[in-house]
Amino acid sequence: MLNKQQIKLYLGSIVLLFAIFTFHVEASDQPPLTHSLTTIAPPIVAASLRLENMDEELIDIKSLKGKTIVINFWATWCPPCRREMTSLEKLHLETKDNNVVVLAVNIGEDIETVFSFINSIEPSPTFPILFDKDSLAMEQWKVIGLPTTYIVNPKGKIVYKAIGGREFDHPDILKRVSHLNGLNKDENKK
């Protein structure tokens, strides 16, 4: 009979082994992620987005007006979504003190599934993860494939889009996201 301590140790070892295995497979056998962003010209008004987070609290992007928002639509079963998640966390850490909010909208999965995944990657996401259980928000945002990421400027307009996995902590993306935060106020007024 195993006691609680032994079970915890056992489960911890399995999760760690899986994380190492996943990292190895995903880092070595997949096409490289790029760092391009498609400019939306002219910028278009972002659709509404009001969804629950991991703590079942409603998050409404209306309340984030005045900030740059990076909105990533994803699922745990989608390989490129999993690959880019750590780079989104690095983008979040690099920009969170500079008026940028990163949100990841999970499509169609439950909290337990998402929780297991985010605890298996390093760095584990600390930005809000929202749940679009019936995929209605995804349809409103005209997302066709996963992952898809939109970048919304402080005026509430979509200025960049990326279809497919990206390296979000690449200096080019960090620079373009940071650039929206008032460094070029004229551009945000468009």
Binding site: P31, T34, P79, I163
Partner: peptide
């Protein structure tokens, strides 16, 4: 897909 990296799997 736009050039320079848009893709789906």
């Amino acid at each position: 897909y736009d050039p320079n990296g848009d893709w789906n799997q």
